[in-house]
């Protein structure tokens, strides 16, 4: 074929080939540099500050949210992370799940973290899918739960789920961090009464059937209290509309879409697929849910090499009167 081409055409083809390979090489080199830089950058976490208004906050209140640590470390025994949390002087600390990869294997890791956090401020722990999967023998969706307890819609009793005791919870409670399994805890902070509620089964199919009563108690009892609702997965807020979920909602799970592309946003989540925010998914940052702020943390996990333009984060929320 080449013999039919003129020397000029051959030269042009060579130039085009060179250009194509050159471009591919430069793009690949750039991609490798970006991945490496992100990977190195992800060794450290950043702080993301949010300002939230609630007329119930008579004085400024600071909440620190830790999420999706997945047994990762920042310094020996997470000293770096703990020291920073302490420096930021939180009034309440909330861990929104997946702090460990396995509740059975990493229970000591979680207890150690809980012990250190609870020395700084009142601390709460909400289970994520990783904890749930290693503690319960079955997924916490409505069908499996009904089958496990032998319930039908008519005789369902949501307290049965909470009667299942686990050693992980005991270890955490012993360490001083309160585990919230479809329950609320009321604390007095700076002359304010704050209700913190944690959802155990954030699976949308079982949320109302196994959490409704406790959730409504949290929402409608003592409505003057500042209400914080902590859930690992944000799907209940995507699936259901409700007039009031709380004065502040906290979630994790999505890892901020793993990779974030400028203009396009979060690239992928397991449940939302590609470009999940485009299909209305709650993936990262601050959203408005029934007029109140929902904060989805990208979490603190730092081992994923594909976590690009998405540095692990420590969420710091300042709640003010206006």
């Amino acid at each position: 074929m080449d013999k039919f081409l003129s020397p000029k055409a051959k030269k042009n083809i060579r130039a085009a080939k060179f250009f194509a390979f050159g471009m591919i090489f430069v793009c690949l080199a750039t991609a490798i540099v970006i991945v490496l830089c992100s990977y190195i950058g992800n060794r450290n976490f950043r702080e993301t500050f949010y300002n939230v208004s609630s007329i119930k906050a008579d004085s400024p209140l600071r909440v620190i949210q830790l999420s999706d640590l997945h047994s990762c470390l920042y310094g020996d025994d997470n000293q770096k992370l703990i020291a920073r949390v302490e420096e930021l002087k939180p009034d309440v600390i909330i861990c929104t799940g997946d702090m460990v990869n396995s509740a059975t294997d990493d229970a000591d890791f979680a207890a150690d973290l809980g012990r250190k956090l609870s020395k700084i401020a009142p601390s709460y722990y909400v289970y994520g899918n990783n904890e749930v999967e290693s503690i319960y023998d079955f997924p916490l969706n409505e069908k499996e739960l009904d089958e496990h307890f032998g319930f039908t819609k008519a005789n369902r009793d949501e307290t049965k789920l909470l009667e299942i005791k686990d050693s992980f919870e005991q270890k955490l409670e012993k360490a001083g961090i309160k585990v919230l399994k479809n329950e609320k805890d009321t604390i007095e902070v700076k002359n304010m009464t704050v209700d913190v509620y944690g959802v155990l089964n954030s699976n949308p199919s079982s949320f109302w059937s196994y959490s409704e009563k406790s959730f409504f108690d949290h929402i409608y009892e003592n409505s003057d209290n500042l209400k914080i609702t902590a859930v690992h997965e944000p799907f209940i807020f995507e699936e259901f509309s409700h007039d009031f979920w709380g004065d502040l909602m906290l979630c994790g799970h999505t890892h901020g879409g793993v990779m974030r592309v400028p203009v396009l946003g979060p690239l992928y989540t397991h449940e939302g697929g590609l470009l999940p925010e485009r299909s209305g998914g709650l993936v990262y940052g601050r959203y408005d849910v029934s007029g109140k702020p929902l904060i989805v943390s990208s979490g603190l996990e730092n081992k994923n090499i594909l976590r690009i333009n998405n540095q692990p984060e420590l969420v710091v929320i300042d709640i003010n009167k206006f």
């Binding site: 008579d58 002359n191 003010n320």
Partner: peptide, 29 residues
């Protein structure tokens, strides 16, 4: 310092300062 965090902190601190100095307080309890 992270520039975005600095400006967030400045505006948040100003809001607190403003509330402390210029708004109603409900200090009855």
């Amino acid at each position: 310092l992270d520039s975005e965090n600095v400006i967030k902190l400045i505006t948040s601190a100003y809001k607190e300062y403003y509330i402390e100095n210029y708004t109603d307080n409900f200090g009855l309890a």
